[in-house]
């Protein structure tokens, strides 16, 4: 779905790519909702490739440490992605494979592949502010929200659209709502911010998109910064160095045996 995931993914790319499709629904929705769906689907389409290959850097700043690592990743559709650490040396080869709703991690030092259990889903992904659960849930969230356009017009000299996504009553999502702002530039809808709210409607996590670049002929933000609201000063930033969409990758690429191969 959604824009939101889309972008999230998108940047995040490779990974959990997939920008899932279809956001909320249906023809019987009021105009606002139908229009929101149409635009967000378009954003999805813009981001989505049938497959992708990306090289990116992830910077993580916490109260206790700051680190950066280089990643290379591949994705196909919503459900298949593979990300491998290429530096620093001591973590080189560490890889994460997402296949459907299952995540495997390969640790080269011990030559072990671990299938993450539900109890491990709350763990941090590669030391970042994203959890393993974020990666699995990402493509599912598109099915869990209803969205409406809450603002459209000029703001600070730019033409923007604000969307509010509210979870469906029985959706298995933790957010009270999500707000998203897009910059509309010609035919391009470029995400600017996403704010995730808790059940009390207090901001819990913010994602800021910036540094628009052209990847595979499409204008996309090259940087996505995730900021947890309850940890001032901390963030995880993903910086795309290259992103090739619609690359030729076989399904067998996303296998456990490939996970181990450097």
């Amino acid at each position: 779905m959604v824009g939101m995931d889309a972008k999230f993914t998108l940047i995040f790319a490779i990974l959990f790519t997939a920008v899932a499709g279809g956001h909320c629904l249906a023809a019987d929705k009021p105009d606002g909702a139908a229009r929101a769906k149409e635009i967000l689907d378009r954003v999805d389409d813009m981001w989505r490739g049938k497959s992708s290959h990306a090289v990116l850097t992830m910077k993580v700043a916490t109260a206790n440490y700051t680190r950066a690592m280089s990643l290379e990743g591949w994705s196909k559709g919503k459900d298949m992605s593979l990300v491998r650490v290429t530096s620093p040396l001591k973590e080189k080869g560490t890889a994460t494979l997402k296949s459907g709703s299952t995540i495997y991690t390969y640790l080269p030092k011990t030559d072990k592949t671990i299938r993450l259990t539900s109890g491990m889903m709350s763990g941090s992904w590669m030391g970042s502010h994203l959890t393993n659960d974020d990666l699995v849930k990402e493509s599912r969230m598109t099915e869990d929200f209803d969205s409406v356009v809450t603002f459209e017009g000029k703001r600070d000299g730019a033409y923007v659209m604000d969307f509010t996504l509210t979870p469906k009553p029985d959706a298995a999502v933790v957010w009270g709502k999500i707000t998203m702002t897009l910059n509309v530039e010609g035919d391009d809808y470029l995400p600017v911010t996403e704010v995730f709210y808790d059940e009390d409607m207090k901001p819990s996590r913010t994602i800021v998109f910036k540094d628009i670049k052209i990847f595979s002929g499409r204008r996309l933000p090259a940087i996505m910064r995730v900021t947890p609201q309850d940890k001032p000063g901390e963030f995880t930033e993903l910086v795309y160095e290259s992103l090739n969409l619609d690359v030729d990758i076989d399904d067998s690429f996303f296998s456990i045996s490939r996970l181990r191969r450097d």
Partner: peptide, 14 residues
């Protein structure tokens, strides 16, 4: 009975 991860917007706990 089984293991699970419990999540809210602010936390996830095994």
């Amino acid at each position: 009975t089984g293991q699970a991860m419990f999540s809210t917007a602010s936390r996830s706990v095994g």
